[in-house]
């Protein structure tokens, strides 16, 4: 929880963009699109988990 989460997401983002360029240069546009989607889904899963934690905290704290 904290800075390493940001670095994890940044690493995934950079990795996906590098892979994307690599695959596009080698002529496989579909794989490039798939790796982009895969990276996006992985990051999205992590984000959704953290956002649900935030909503639970706010719900208990503000008694919503």
């Amino acid at each position: 929880m904290g800075i390493e989460l940001i670095f994890k997401i940044a690493a995934i983002g950079i990795l996906v963009s590098v892979l994307n360029q690599l695959l596009i240069r080698s002529g496989r546009e579909e794989q490039a699109m798939l790796t982009t989607l895969a990276g996006l889904i992985v990051v999205l899963l992590m984000i959704v988990k953290e956002i649900s934690n935030l909503f639970d905290t706010v719900k208990t704290m503000f008694r919503l």
Binding site: G2, I9, I12, V16, S17, T36, I47, N53
Partner: peptide
Amino acid sequence: SQRPEISIQISIITGVI
């Protein structure tokens, strides 16, 4: 520049943290 959707998610996660 490369992945705008990931940069938005980084700003969301920073807000949460």
